[in-house]
Amino acid sequence: MARLSGASVARIEEICDAYQGEKTPLVMILSDIQREFGYVPLEVQEVVSRKTGLSVAEIYGVVTFYSFFSLTPKGKHVIGCCLGTACYVKGAQRIIDRFCNDLGIEPGGTTDDGMFTIDALRCIGACAAAPAVTIDGKVYARVDISQVPGIISAYRQMEGGAE
């Protein structure tokens, strides 16, 4: 098992300590960790268990219950396809299918190169822009299926250019 660095352990402990005044703050602690580390693997859960006194089984149960938490790292770019009703009735399923097809992964999955993760989202509040897609938080409105390959290659190029 990959060991956590001392700095990571210290940081996780710091996050736990920040909630000391709160009753039952597990979900908040995990949310902070997820946001900061990008995932919540077993080693991290063990640290949280030591700090909070909750069993790892319980923490693992919480981590796997909420879709916000992930046990494995997410890709560099997270493509969120809205599958809310308003988007769905405007063909959002085909958009996510096409993203999945082109990247060769399932919703929730991450490409082997760690570049992209595809998430299915529920209404992001941009129903007027249905079907809506967010990439790293930026909202793409009224996405047409033929734009998909272009969007992907734009992000790939961005990465290529940076290297």
Binding site: G53, L54, S55, A57, E58, Y60, G61, T64, F65
Partner: peptide
């Protein structure tokens, strides 16, 4: 497991 041992080994997972 929780009642007997305090810090249980078993838990629910996924949903």
């Amino acid at each position: 497991c929780k009642n007997a041992h305090g810090n249980g080994v078993l838990g629910f997972q996924n949903r």
